[in-house]
Amino acid sequence: MTVADVDAVLRRHPAARRDALIPLLQEVQETRGYLSREAILQISRHLNLPAAKVYGVATFYSQFRFRPPGKFHVQVCRGTGCHVAGSARVLQAVVEGLGLRPGETSRDGLFSLEAVACLGACAQSPVVAVNGEFHAGMTPDSLSAVLDSCRAKACDDARAH
């Protein structure tokens, strides 16, 4: 995310006040998928709020990310339907398989992990979305196959370059 991207968003809300904080955080996150350090500082200057406060508010909501998403953004649904169908085990398997906690991005930039409240596809539970593509009825094993295919795809892409 560049300073200019964030500036463009902020310019659309010249008179924003502190009650606009959350919508602004959302809008800025939409431009690049996360909130960079500089973006948070720009927002706090724009609203004349302390950076510690803006960071505090942003970390309160699980929707905000502070690192760029990976090439493959994995969202594990933790809604009620998926929970009943065993999504906790699925999430645990990803956490162990990728060595990431929700909100983190792997060092090689390949994967990022997010636990979301509900993806709205309860009929296919437990559901996992990778870059917005839904995978239904996931188990730890079937998910690990999905992740493997992501890795394979990344290798192919790298060779193609």
Binding site: A52, V54, G56
Partner: peptide, 27 residues
């Protein structure tokens, strides 16, 4: 000054500076 605030939520709530850095780098 507002160098510190609450971060996170639930059991992961804590007090910290912006970006959870050392007070040394904060205001």
């Amino acid at each position: 000054v507002a160098a510190i605030d609450f971060h996170g939520r639930g059991s992961r709530t804590c007090i910290g500076t912006a970006f959870d850095e050392s007070l040394n780098l904060s205001s």
